[in-house]
């Protein structure tokens, strides 16, 4: 366990050294937050209570989306670029002869990154949003705590998806295409473009059951207090189940990959 903590803290520190990138990210997320907040306000004035949100909920949704975009790597990225490049170049051989578990290694690394991006890139945009708009803030500390749990599980689910995407590089030699498709799915089905509760009919129902929902829609709904009591536990359970399923699938696929497939390069 100590190893994985060391890896997580190393990645945290590594991201912490990219100060300019962090500042640029905060700036971009904040600008987009303002643009989308005004768009949402216009939309919710035309259609009050759309998706079960009032205007304050909808604006809060926008700012949390901007804050979680980087930590939950909704558009892909994080460890993904490094790992798929290591598979493509064959450097993954080095990861494989170390006395560590491949998946746990990258999970630890991605959690370290997410922790930094949550603190360094996530808090400020929502803080700016709260200065400029009326946001729905959780009144009870328990809800804040539940929100942090939901964000953590969301990051793990996001990792599970991105890890599987990376592993396709063992077969496809280059997973860029798959990454782009997955990134698009991530943006759309996480609820980054619009809340999933807004989608009509079966599209809304199905998208709320897909793993991407666990990355953004669920944490935001927990923040907004849409899930309380038993329902809150069920919601966190929904995330946890996807996390476990995806991590197990990743384990199975990586052992298949290392068994059946060429580790590239001499």
């Amino acid at each position: 366990m100590m190893v994985y903590a060391a890896i997580a803290s190393r990645t945290f520190r590594r991201y912490a050294t990219y100060r300019a990138a962090t500042a640029a990210g905060v700036f971009t997320n904040s600008v987009f937050g303002f643009i989308m907040a005004f768009t949402y306000i216009a939309l919710w004035h035309a259609r009050p209570q759309l998706g079960g949100y009032d205007v304050a909920d909808a604006v809060t949704y926008v700012w949390l989306g901007q804050s979680l975009l980087a930590p939950a790597a909704l558009f892909g990225g994080g460890f993904q670029d490094e790992f798929s490049e290591r598979i493509r170049s064959g450097d993954v051989a080095i990861d494989l002869y170390r006395p560590v578990d491949l998946q746990s290694w990258w999970l630890a690394s991605d959690l370290g990154r997410a922790a930094f991006q949550f603190l360094g890139r996530g808090i400020l945009p929502t803080f700016f949003g709260a200065l400029a708009f009326d946001l729905t803030l959780p009144p009870r500390p328990g809800t804040w705590l539940a929100f942090l749990c939901a964000v953590f599980l969301g990051v793990v689910v996001s990792f599970g998806i991105r890890y599987l995407v990376c592993l396709t590089a063992f077969w496809l030699m280059d997973s860029t295409g798959v990454q782009q498709v997955a990134g698009f799915c991530g943006m759309f089905f996480s609820g980054m473009v619009l809340p999933l509760t807004v989608f009509p009919g079966w599209l809304g129902d199905v998208s709320l059951l897909l793993p991407w929902a666990a990355c953004l829609q669920v944490p935001v709904d927990v923040f907004l207090g849409k899930h309380e009591g038993v329902q809150l536990l069920q919601t966190l359970g929904f995330q946890a189940i996807w996390a476990v399923v995806l991590l197990l699938a990743g384990r199975a696929l990586s052992s298949l990959a290392t068994r059946k497939v060429v580790v590239q390069g001499g």
Binding site: G90, D91, A93, I94, L96, Y97, R98, P99, V100, D101, G265, G266
Partner: peptide, 16 residues
């Protein structure tokens, strides 16, 4: 693999 990894050292000249 992991058991063995503690007892071996590897240097790939073209990788680090």
């Amino acid at each position: 693999r992991i058991q063995l990894a503690r007892r071996i050292g590897v240097v790939f000249g073209q990788r680090t």
